[in-house]
Design a protein around this nucleic acid. Sequence first.
RNA 1: CGGGGUGUAGCAUAGUGGUAGUGUGCGCGGUUUGGGACCGUGUGGUCCGGGUUCGAUUCCCGGCUCCCCGACCA
Length: 421
Amino acid sequence: MRQSKLFTKTRKEVPADETSKNAQLLIRAGYVYKEMAGVYSYLPLGLRVLNKIIQIIREEMNHEGAQEMVMTALQDSAVWEETDRWDDTKVDNWFKTKLKNGTEVGLSITHEEPLTRIMASYISSYRDLPLYAYQFQNKFRNETRAKSGIMRGREFMMKDLYDFSRNEAEHNEFYNRIREAYRRVFERVGIGHLTYVTFASGGIFSEFSEEFQTVSEAGEDLIYVDEASGVALNKEVLNDEVIAKLGLKKESLVEKKSIESGNIFHLGTKFSEPLGLSYSNEEGETIPVYMGSYGLGPTRLMGTLVEVLADEKGIVWPESVAPFKVHLVALNTDNQELVDYADGIYASFKDKGIEVLYDDRDARAGEKFADSDLIGIPYRLVVSKKAKEEGKFEVVTRATGETRRLTEEEIWADFDSNPET
RNA sequence: CGGGGUGUAGCAUAGUGGUAGUGUGCGCGGUUUGGGACCGUGUGGUCCGGGUUCGAUUCCCGGCUCCCCGACCA
């Protein structure tokens, strides 16, 4: 894409009403637009990143045999009344609104109830199980206090996956597969080394739930990590008994601030029983379906990546989710011969299927470099009059600052040998 | 939801009971051209409602907004 055509522009100054690094950088670089507190629109650059994150998660979910669907944001109160989660005293962060005829409806906070009801009309036999369904969908939560930029909003995107199994053992097998699938997601987006599977409270049919916690100063949680074993636990479950049960030593636990970037739950029959989701087994007996739920928020993950990987110059995207692989920066754009040459390089990238943002704007070098650093594309290729005369072009790796001077042939050889985009 | 702040141009900020200033952005002209360059010029503003006052952006009341701390939460 030509940067001159991109409708967003970068900003030098940070918005006064944002204190979180992720929102400051994402707004300055033109990835997101703040609509109101805790509510952000995703602009062209931001959508590219979000879609890449979504695609990585999708691939890992599909790999485990989950089927993608999408449910509604508008919610029928009836199904929530069945599980006693409609009442504002039970769930206090509903957004509720009314139909013209006065009927109350909700804006989706999660989807256990509606999906369980859907499944009740398709699951009837043990032959139908197990099955796994997931979606990417916007959740609405009426937070009393939105904060941390895009990481804790009132409207945010969630990947929620649910399993419908015949029994606990079958559920557990899937649960363990998803734990590994989540690990792969965090590896693929470049924060695997910072992300711990953490014991936490909130288990319904087990003592603990498990959270994926990414170590960051921007985090709102406190976890205790045994670095030798990689075992971590949330502060909310930290006590001597638990430490002993997990075979840990109190002295070896290190406290870290962290972001809850995903979680996995055993649900048991909490939803299937009240909503009448059951199946007939081989003996003809009626058995409630055993469930689990698995959450991972693409928008929060995007914010987490900015928080954890950015440097003082701006965002640093890992290649796997960057909006483009290459930032082609043309200098001396008053020289038509050079512009033609840079246009040719740009066309070659496109022909090769390498995603490229082409800074063809009529701007000074300093401004272009500053913008390039801020936007955070993994590789920057500078085409200038001097470089063209020398036949060597600067290729800078954003993450490390490593600068190489390569001929055009070397550049193509380099990108062709590293085709991952 | 409790507590504390805040609101001035697209953005960032100063100031004042009496014609609202600066930086940046944006437009135009010129000099520049490898790290947000410079000169000139133009454009553009007091959150909403009420009150006090000859006069309110300023003071008072109410509302809303946004931010921070706490509680709550993927």
